[in-house]
Write a protein that binds this DNA or RNA. Structure first.
Lengths: 100, 100
DNA sequence: CCGGATCCTTTTTGATACTG
DNA sequence: CAGTATCAAAAAGGATCCGG
């Protein structure tokens, strides 16, 4: 099992759980993420059936992201994890990077 | 935020959520994990305050692992994720390795 | 039985530049 | 605006051998 692996997936899903977002909106909602990473993670989430991508072929381009029905069942997970991390601080993955 | 990152952490926590386990028991409960990885992940979980380790200096050695009080609040997360993955299949991290 | 220490491979992440 | 292409660095994962 490998749920929601990736440095930003929880936060992405949490953002999307609160409503449709455009690419640029997500980028602003996740300070520190690069376009590259946002693209990669969204693509993976899409492939995993957690995110739905809707592209409008207009000028200027517009792309919207939503969570899928399947992912609705995970919504409490996102909520709990976000809330938990606010209380206990971030967990794991070199949480103490102590640059040096 | 980086919750429960690691290939085995969810499953480890899920196992421990169901009761105290010894090292060897966990190993058997997680087919495919190496002792090395189990050690590493347990150490990280311990450092993150999600797991409590109790070593008995006996012969033969015995070590028990439990989830901490702080981690109790995450128990529904483990449950939901495990249940979800049983329905929808594993998520992410090269789930389609399609070896040639 | 429960690890630690090494060494090596694979995956992930990130910086930067470029495009319809 | 919403990406793609490259390249490089870092982190995670795993095999194997050693020790109390």
């Amino acid at each position: 099992m490998r749920p929601l692996t990736g440095k930003w997936k929880i936060e992405i899903m949490w953002s999307l759980a609160q409503g449709t977002h455009r690419f640029g909106e997500l980028r602003r909602a996740l300070p520190g993420i690069t376009q590259h990473m946002l693209t990669v993670q969204l693509r993976e989430l899409e492939a995993d059936g957690l995110v739905k991508r809707t592209a409008y072929e207009e000028m200027p381009p517009r792309v919207e992201y939503d969570i899928t029905e399947a992912a609705r069942g995970l919504q409490p997970v996102f909520q709990t994890l976000i809330a938990w991390s606010k209380q206990h601080g971030p967990i794991s993955r070199r949480h103490t990077v102590d640059r040096e």
